[in-house]
Design a protein around this nucleic acid. Structure first.
Lengths: 193, 193
DNA sequence: GGTCGCTGTTAATGTTGATTAACATCGTAC
DNA sequence: GTACGATGTTAATCAACATTAACAGCGACC
């Protein structure tokens, strides 16, 4: 009786398992059979839930990009000043990366395997998310060139997204503080002089 | 008469083309045929130069890891103080990343596709290179915990290795200065408090 | 001037893997 | 109690692809 109607459970389960596998072995390194096995099914069963392997990846990346962008925008809008907005972006990205290391990895690496119509849309969302950072950065550092703000943003993403590779040396709270301190200082340093 | 004996030209040519392709489309996304075509040959011709596709990747990653480690050590040894040593590591890594964006990308992403005997060796070299950073960092910041220094090192690598994704917004010299400033500040921030 | 090693080529070979077909189960709405 | 949609399964199908075989040119060295 606890079940409501349980429609998308399987889909989410598959997407979650796929994220782990894609992150570990890469999109082409994981077969439909592997994917099915990871959720206790056979390969072809996946076609009851997704149009195909590419569609599965596309949906995964689309979802990540939308979550990053929409929550990023929400937090910026809720912030009173540019400094607070930048801090909010930092905290949001760090939380997301620490909670979803596999998603971050796939998001960074596998865009090239998404077929065209969706690829453009994902790229658009990724760009919009980065532009949110660029916009806030240029409010915090008036007069900063757009080029430089964009490059600094990508470098900060690189730092924050490196999380998946530092597997469990530090506990989560410590890691979050460390990343915040490092990224925050890096972004300040980017506009000094 | 300008030719000396030209033995390994082809091998290097293939490795270079392979780096570009692997970086762009991933190891499994590139076929032996693609690789051959990229250097004006057919696929099977590559077997005259490499034992196979995996061996080619292994050699590539081995070479990168060795270059990073040996030159990194050389520069640290040549430095008079820990601060200078850290600066030397930063400059070396930045130069390497800016000069070889494709190699950096492959180095970060494709270790999982290298077969076992070589994979362990590459991992050993990568670890040794990172430990060089950790060692120097702990000399610069006495009392810093090893865990934290290691996590900070990986985060700095993430920042520096993000270069390939910022394609040509800034000219090289500007980009080098930006990365230096950001990474340097990030590493300072990692040990504040 | 003949042989051999090096580098290529094109034609198999064999495997893997994505996708589809054909067929089963089963709960639910009528 | 029966038809149907949802969800699975196993057995094709079909295309890629890594690797190997068989064969050819060619320069160097005797």
């Amino acid at each position: 009786m606890a079940e409501v109607s349980a429609p998308p459970t399987r889909r989410l389960e598959i997407l979650s398992a796929a994220a782990e596998l894609f992150a570990r072995r890469g999109y082409h390194g994981v077969s439909i059979g592997d994917l099915g096995r990871a959720v206790g099914l056979t390969g072809p069963a996946l076609y009851r839930h997704f149009r195909g392997k590419e569609a599965l990846l596309a949906e995964m990346l689309l979802d990540i990009s939308e979550r990053l962008l929409s929550e990023g925008r929400r937090r910026v809008a809720a912030a009173g000043t540019p400094d607070v907005a930048l801090d909010a972006l930092l905290r949001w990205h760090i939380d997301f990366a620490l909670d979803n290391p596999a998603l971050i990895t796939v998001h960074v690496r596998e865009l090239g395997n998404v077929p065209q119509p969706e690829r453009r849309e994902i790229r658009r969302l990724q760009r919009a998310y980065a532009e949110e950072w660029v916009r806030v950065l240029r409010l915090v550092h008036p007069g900063a060139a757009e080029d430089r703000a964009r490059a600094a943003t990508h470098a900060a993403f690189g730092l924050l997204n490196s999380t998946p590779h530092s597997t469990g040396e530090l506990d989560r709270a410590t890691m979050a503080r460390l990343l915040h301190a490092m990224a925050s200082d890096a972004l300040t340093g980017a506009f000094r002089s």
